[in-house]
Write a protein that binds this DNA or RNA. Structure first.
Lengths: 123, 123
DNA sequence: ATCGTTTATCGTCTATATACGATAAACCAG
DNA sequence: CTGGTTTATCGTATATAGACGATAAACGAT
């Protein structure tokens, strides 16, 4: 595959250019993985799931992190679509986006399954 | 959960201290996700799987990245255990560690399954 | 209206990730 | 032994991630 001469661009241009070379599926999977790539976010999802009902900043009490940091992690999860949040007055109410989570599960398991099929077809 | 006063420590001490607060399972999953959190590494795994046999730097030809960068991504995958590599003279031969990949699959699907069970038990 | 509570965001700092070119080491071929 | 090939690593630059305290905005309660 042709490789661009990247040192003529800024880092940002570069990163954007690189991304074009990957398929949507590859980028989606990587994005999802990135959202799950910090233990705090794993815990947050677990906490949100366990509480069943949405909950606000009780998440902070479950984590050894400052309120600001937890809020940032929640934002990441929200941007990844794994969590949805509503503002209720002064409070914020988060909950697991089950539909999105199940799509995520599909995405991952499909990818692994395909790899597995390849393995089985040759080894 | 008690939160440490972290601004009295260096960033490194801090990060290490935080990690102690997470379970092994949570950290394992996050580590795995991190290894998969870049599209280049997804592609590399796909390429290695598709070639069936191990292969060396042909991976570079499949990616829009420099040899140095690809080598770094391979190192990340190797450190995560998803890929194994052998040096054969001047060449390096990589291949998917199928056992590790299948464990990874288990780890992930177990986690999602548990979340799903929680959902089903209440909603 | 004022006070306490809650939470998102700002500013900042440090660490890590990502990319590259250059280079050195290890080999193979001649 | 010399020259080409391959690849890991070094050095470097930039971008992103992750943490915090401080603060402002939005409420509810008094």
């Amino acid at each position: 595959m042709l490789r661009p001469v990247n040192h003529l661009k800024t880092g940002l241009d570069m990163a954007k250019a690189q991304m074009d070379r990957f398929t949507d599926a590859q980028q989606d999977l990587a994005r999802l993985a990135k959202a799950l790539s910090h233990p705090a976010r794993i815990v947050i999802l677990e906490v949100l799931a366990a509480r069943k009902v949405c909950l606000c900043g009780e998440v902070v009490d479950e984590l050894p992190l400052s309120q600001a940091t937890v809020s940032q992690h929640l934002k990441v999860l929200k941007e990844a679509g794994l969590v949805s949040g509503e503002i209720e007055g002064a409070r914020s109410c988060y909950c697991v986006d089950w539909k999105s989570l199940s799509q995520a599960q599909d995405l991952i398991s499909t990818w692994f399954k395909r790899a597995d099929d390849i393995k089985r077809s040759c080894c």
